[in-house]
């Protein structure tokens, strides 16, 4: 849910601030008042902390414990916290057929989904930069794919792409001269011949990546637009006086200013795309070469009723994700570290 719903950070803004945000300065007070303030503060934050601990932190810890046990949904009542810890689940997860394929699909999906959504967001930001009539309205319209219910928009995409009565296939056949309808969401790959070479194109995977880009570009658009508005106009005016063209102004003024925001957006979007479940589950059900790890977790949990296996698979996601984000931060994160 997080990925679809909460477009910004908590303790800190996902978009870097110029420095630490100014705290209200206070006159030092006597110890008793200070203590009373601390008590009130703790009391006010307590309900939130309790909910987060009970519904987020404890379950995560428990999940780690479950991953090392042989627990099935049927035998749930007999499972304790201190069961027999074994590594079987991880062996099963890694050796199960399709594990590597799923991992590769997830990686391709998240890398291209993230890149495409940020690229579209950037294009939209640049196109809607100059004022025109109804710009405010157009900007809010841009956010529609992001705020609309995911189930509704996946159904519309399914309908539009349907081989029987989908509008895309209809106009493709009538206008573009396609010889037969394309099963966009159920065709694993189609061969496209180009200059005598036959190249297999993963149709369904491309479609779910496009969907991801369509649904998530408003998120990048929102934050890039906010950042763009904060760029001092004087910078660009100076470049204009010096005779810089539009592309030069973008390359040397705008782009460097947006880069930190893009870096943070990449991390956030990658984390959420890597673990996203709704989109692919609803669009293809994980078929036609689009099975990602989170869909697998769901199938282990509800299809097989194997809790241990599902937990282990979820833990594998978390570890892979942590390693990838760690590598990213190590190589590109020098600048962002100051902001978080």
């Amino acid at each position: 849910m997080t990925s679809t719903t909460t477009p910004s950070g908590t303790g800190t803004s996902p978009v870097p601030l110029g420095g630490p945000s100014p705290r209200p300065k206070r006159i030092p007070k006597r110890g008793a008042m200070r203590r009373s303030e601390a008590r009130t503060g703790a009391a006010l934050i307590a309900p939130t902390v309790i909910i987060v601990l009970a519904v987020v932190v404890l379950p995560i810890l428990w999940s780690v414990s479950l991953a090392f046990q042989r627990v099935r949904l049927i035998s749930l009542r007999s499972a304790g916290i201190f069961g027999n810890y074994v590594l079987d689940n991880f062996v099963h997860v890694v050796t199960a057929p399709g594990f590597v394929d799923t991992l590769v699909t997830t990686l391709v999906y998240s890398v291209f989904g993230t890149a495409a959504s940020i690229a579209f967001g950037l294009v939209a930001t640049l196109a809607l930069r100059k004022k025109f009539r109804f710009r405010g309205f157009v900007r809010s319209v841009m956010l529609l794919p992001y705020v609309a219910p995911v189930v509704a928009v996946t159904f519309v995409w399914q309908t539009m792409l349907s081989p029987q009565f989908g509008i895309i296939n209809y106009w493709g056949q009538h206008l573009l001269g396609w010889t037969k309808p394309i099963a966009f969401l159920s065709e694993k790959s189609s061969d496209v011949s180009l200059f005598g070479l036959t190249i297999p194109i993963p149709t369904a995977l491309i479609m779910v990546i496009l969907f991801e880009a369509w649904r998530q570009f408003p998120f990048a658009f929102l934050f890039l637009t906010a950042r763009m508005q904060a760029i001092p106009a004087s910078l660009e005016e100076a470049a204009l006086v010096d005779g810089a063209t539009i592309s030069q102004r973008f390359r040397y003024i705008i782009w460097p200013q947006l880069l930190p925001t893009i870096a943070v957006l990449s991390v956030l979007r990658f984390i959420w795309t890597f673990t996203s479940f709704d989109d692919i589950y609803l669009l293809t059900g994980g078929g036609a070469g689009t099975e990602v790890i989170s869909v697998r977790v769901y199938q282990f949990l509800t299809g097989r009723g194997d809790i241990g296996l599902a937990s282990a698979q979820a833990l594998v996601i978390a570890i892979v994700l942590a390693v990838l984000v760690g590598i990213y931060l190590k190589f590109f994160g020098k600048r962002e570290e100051d902001y978080t």
Partner: peptide, 12 residues
């Protein structure tokens, strides 16, 4: 908590 993917919470 905000960054934590919900699919990982789903199982427990």
């Amino acid at each position: 908590v905000y960054l934590f993917p919900s699919i990982l919470l789903a199982v427990p």
